[in-house]
Design a protein around this nucleic acid. Structure first.
Length: 583
DNA sequence: CTAGGGTTAG
């Protein structure tokens, strides 16, 4: 077929400036009048606009595509890309399959990129592996962009190790590829690995941008790596990235999660803000138990014209609950639906149950669960059990456990909580029953660990850890620390296994010796200058013995020790803890 | 002459 080149070129130019569908349809009429509807570049351009542009129309693109005879690779790419970024990415896979099996046009790097995006979004690991195979067969496995897509796709499907293998095999890596690897680790929870990638990166001289910093800062938040975070803050400042909201928000979160709310506030005050910025501040105050501040920031957010979403309320309610602001919390809870049109989710109900429970109103907490749509979920019952522990209430504790049991959801932590309640009631048989339950039912325990950051390195410890290179020194130091703490008044909880108030799942892992945070504390004391604060992050809740230990250590060594456990922050200072021994 | 990487909660 012969086309009139000058007319075709004119139409292509007009198409490039097209920004809405009505206009496109007028151009299309023009195309038909001139007999150019089968001109490849023109039909591709129209198709691409419809499939990809925000003002396009995917259903219309779908319609157009059906009428193309023998679509070329570019046309397939447009339709695959359109569906990959649409609410139904599986359609992209459908077109990819058709392209491979029914079409003479072969896939290229673009095809693979878009298809991988779709696999990532719908979590299609099998398809990802299959596409990976095709990439190797067609010889595209050396392409940086395609490999970056593979890294993300494997990472998003929970295969960080395979993502890393693809990454390591890339013949050349640019900044985007490095950033993808960092965010893959960070989102998969491999925070130490994410931070380690940064060291490799600096050796390779690829530079750093906002994306790099955001991924790294997110990992710093999770492991409480304040020193590293501060270093990244400095880099952001040098590179003029402090006005980048993504970077700013990641910094706010990092400071808040590392227990430095002043730092968070300082960043917050010096940047353009969006909903994330407000939420990070509110959540930050909330998890530290500063309800008044969370409420203040919530109101400021409203004044700034930002509509609160469910996360803002989560932070707000968490703060109210930990500070004991029951009336305020319940008020906000009702306003969620009545005033802000935010539907309370299970987590919000959890805050309310916790709020009443913590305040000692256990019957009211029980009533809330009964009125909630989540009686069949273990989460709320578990919170009730935890409240029963704080108030040593055997009756409600047993009700909570019975419900957990009926749901088949009893875990080791639950048994420990109830055993602790029994122990406080001097019910040795009750404790023995819980111990037996765990043993006979083979209930799984979560392995406990603690992180501590010393200079730029994050060190991780488990119970009775001997794997650290400085292990010998650490145990020696621990003896000294225990001795000094004892001189200050610490009495070791000698009972084996959750008697007389020990209450962490970590107590199940070992009948004696040292929980992970004691090792982290000893290491921190040995490796940091006198007077500096120690920051520890652990994945389980602190047990009574370690809590007492840390209080006396903070006094004996005159150190602030900030422990972030699974649920909240404990600021130890001068022999006292900010949780006032309620947790 | 169409690609790839970003923050809160969980």
């Amino acid at each position: 077929m012969v086309f009139e080149t000058s007319k075709a070129n004119a139409i292509l130019t007009i198409l490039q400036g097209c920004n809405n569908l009505t206009r496109l349809q007028k151009i299309q009429a023009h195309v038909i009048v001139n007999g150019l509807q089968n001109h490849p570049a023109i039909s591709n351009s129209i198709l691409n606009f419809c499939a990809v542009s925000i003002s396009g129309s995917l259903p219309y693109a779908h319609h157009l595509f059906k009428h193309i005879q023998n679509p070329q690779t570019q046309a397939w790419n447009s339709i695959i890309r359109g569906f990959a970024q649409s609410p139904s990415p599986f359609q992209a896979i459908f077109y990819y399959n058709r392209m491979l099996f029914d079409s003479v046009s072969g896939p290229d790097t673009f095809t693979f990129s878009f298809t991988l995006k779709a696999c990532e979004r719908i979590k299609a690991l099998k398809k990802c592996e299959e596409v990976h195979g095709s990439i190797i067969r067609t010889g595209y496995e050396r392409d940086v962009v395609v490999c970056t897509g593979l890294v993300r796709c494997y990472g998003g499907n929970g295969c960080a190790e395979i993502a890393r293998m693809v990454f390591d095999n890339m013949p050349e890596k640019d900044l985007v590829a490095w950033n993808a690897m960092i965010s893959c680790y960070s989102q998969a929870g491999y925070h130490q690995e994410a931070l380690r990638i940064y060291d490799n990166m600096t050796n390779e001289n690829v530079g750093v941008d906002g994306f790099t910093l955001v991924g790294l800062l997110s990992s710093c938040s999770h492991v409480g790596a304040l020193n590293m975070g501060v270093k990244l803050h400095r880099i952001a400042s040098e590179k003029g990235l402090l006005r980048n909201v993504f970077v700013g928000n990641a910094l706010i979160d990092m400071y808040a999660k590392c227990g430095n709310l002043d730092g968070a506030l300082e960043v917050f005050n010096g940047m353009p803000r969006d909903m994330f910025s407000w939420n990070s501040m509110i959540v930050g105050f909330g998890v530290h138990g500063f309800g008044d501040e969370a409420i203040y920031f919530f109101n400021q957010m409203l004044e700034a014209g930002v509509r609160p979403n469910s996360i803002a309320f989560l932070g707000l309610l968490c703060g109210c609950s930990h500070q004991g602001l029951v009336e305020e919390g319940v008020g906000f809870f009702h306003q969620m639906s009545s005033k802000f049109n935010v539907k309370p989710g299970i987590k919000h109900f959890g805050c309310i149950v916790d709020m009443y429970g913590r305040a000692g109103k256990l019957e009211k907490a029980l009533e809330i669960i009964g009125d909630s749509p989540w009686q069949d979920d273990p989460v709320l019952w578990r919170i009730l059990l935890s409240s029963s522990k704080i108030h040593k209430n055997v009756v409600i504790g047993e009700i909570a456990m019975r419900n957990l049991s009926q749901l088949g959801a009893v875990n080791a932590g639950d048994c420990v909580l109830l055993a602790t309640i029994y122990a406080g009631d001097n019910d040795e048989q009750g404790v023995a029953r819980m111990r037996k339950l765990i043993k006979n039912q083979g209930i799984k325990t979560t392995p406990g660990w603690s992180w501590i950051e010393v200079s730029d390195q994050v060190h991780r410890f488990v119970v009775d850890d001997k794997s650290h290179p400085d292990s010998g020194m650490i145990y020696q130091k621990l003896e000294e620390v225990t001795h000094k703490a004892t001189m200050a008044g610490y009495v070791k909880d000698k009972s084996q296994f959750i008697f007389h108030g020990s209450c962490s799942e970590e107590c199940l892992e070992s009948s004696s010796t040292y929980h992970s945070e004691k090792l982290a504390i000893a290491f921190g004391l040995a490796k940091t200058p006198e007077g500096t604060s120690l920051r520890i992050v652990k994945n389980l809740r602190v047990c009574r013995d370690c809590h007492e230990f840390t209080k006396f250590v903070s006094q004996a060594f005159n150190r602030d020790i900030i422990v972030r456990d699974r649920l909240r922050f404990h600021h130890f200072k001068g022999g006292l803890c900010s949780c006032r021994d309620y947790w």
